[in-house]
Design a protein around this nucleic acid. Structure first.
Length: 118
RNA sequence: CCAGUCGGCUGGAUGGCCGCUCUUGCUAGGCUCGAAAGGGUGCAAGGGAGGAAAGUCCGGGCUCCACGGGAAUAGGGUGCCGGGUAACGCCCGGCGGGGGUGACCCCAGGGAAAGUGCCACAGAAAAUAAACUGCCGCAGCGUGCUGCGGUGAGGGUGAAACGGUGCGGUAAGAGCGCACCGCAGGCUUGGCAACAAGACUGGCAUGGCAAACCCCACCCGGAGCAAGACCGAAUAGGGGUGGCACGAAUCCGCAAGGGUUCAGGACUGUUUUCGGUUCGCCGCCCGGGUUGGUUGCGCGAAGCCAUUGGCAACAAUGGUUCCAGAUGAAUGGCCAUCCAUGGUGGGUUAGACCCCACCGGGACAAAACCCGGCUUACAGGCCGACUGGUAUU
RNA sequence: UGGGGCGUCGCCAAGCGGUAAGGCACCGGAUUUUGAUUCCGGCAUUCGGAGGUUCGAUCCCUCCCGCCCCAG
């Protein structure tokens, strides 16, 4: 799965669907093309210093690597925004947060597909 | 043993499973992303955050720009002396001042006699020393006032009052004279110097503030790796060149040239004789350059060990080692045991810092071109030197 | 990476070497049957923090902390 690296992709994903969980916020945007799914990780400066922010992003990356590959859809951009509890939340709960957020987002996209068009 | 001062070191360990990034090797191609440049994908081995990587406060390297050399103006910085260094506002040693019983610690510490300015309140007066009050003498008379002269000693204040204390001296007094202290001047001695010591001379001049303006001495060209270099598509546009084309009317202009309409070409919407966009057409070559990519990018004022010189900072010589290179940003995720440590309960015990069980639980903080410093943050642990006190011998 | 600014009472703020203005809010009192209005009085012992210069710092200097803005 490719990583999102450009700022404008992050901004575009922020304008599309989002789903908040205890440890993270997941954003989902359908790019309407045939390329593979992409995922990006970010968090705000309010969460702490560089060590804390990096640790949150690494735990989320590892959870996504283990939990998500069989769930993602082609042509989709996912952005995971870390929250402060993600630093110490048990790893199994971190994975289940990701899975349920993605399930609910996919359900939202099915009921209201027009909203995801930018 | 208690209290304290200074300096240095360290910054959890081992293992398992699954990952990230770089380098090298392997058969060297395949597959794949991309317009290209270039990138991704396999296996194995090895490397992979810090003492502050931080704050970005100084100093350099490196790169580009500017510049004939140099100097000056403006602006900014530094400020006892000597040394170290590539350089510094850093470090070392010394001097002076201040603090502490002491080990030791702190100090932007040049110039106030170049000039300007400020010194609230209080106080007679806050800086050309005079006025006021006072003290003393003489004269006058209305007998406590006036005039003249002497004096700069006293005057509640204040952060600070024009040398201080004492003795002599005098009408009263005053460095007026003397002793001691302070101060100034040149001299001698010691020291590279800052400065110190000594005797001599001078009766004393120069209040404080320059982290107020300022003066003096010295230093500084500007920007920053998003510097800079290279590769480089479609489309549009620029230059050159070859072939084809370069029609008609009209307007501006001396001309070169330009505008408008029709015709014509290219692309395109559309059922269409209708419309839209564009303007010489086609080929080749050159240069610039956007998205993007590569590079810059780690052998260095490097680390470690030894010897020598130096009180030291540090330097020289010899040997030895190769030690991170990410870019929405790698160096991790999960788990187990141990270790340091905290809590609770129980046990041993004179008492435990000893033993057992359970629970909790790892300081600060992550390279972003690279080095030398400074500053700030930091759980816990270790080592060395020294000081004061108490007790014992 | 480079540059600039701010921090003063609960809120908005003035002051910029010499006892820290003012407004809103709050508290107490007066007026009123009660409330509003009005009037009177009260309300800053770290002027973001720590050092330093000065007789004396909100103000000057140094270092930190927090917040905001600009350029690429």
């Amino acid at each position: 799965m490719q990583r999102i690296k450009r700022r404008q992709d992050f901004v575009a994903a922020a304008k599309a669907l989002s789903q908040a969980q205890t440890s993270l916020v997941l954003q989902f945007r359908d790019r309407k093309d045939d390329a593979g799914a992409r995922i990006g990780f970010t968090c705000t400066k309010k969460l702490g210093n560089a060590v804390t922010r990096n640790r949150i992003k690494r735990r989320l990356k590892e959870a996504a690597r283990l939990a998500l590959p069989q769930m993602v859809r082609g042509g989709a951009d996912y952005v995971v925004i870390g929250r402060s509890v993600a630093e110490n939340r048990p790893f199994e709960l971190l994975q289940s947060d990701l899975i349920s957020a993605m399930q609910r987002l996919h359900a939202k996209a099915a009921t209201a597909p027009e909203k995801s068009v930018p």
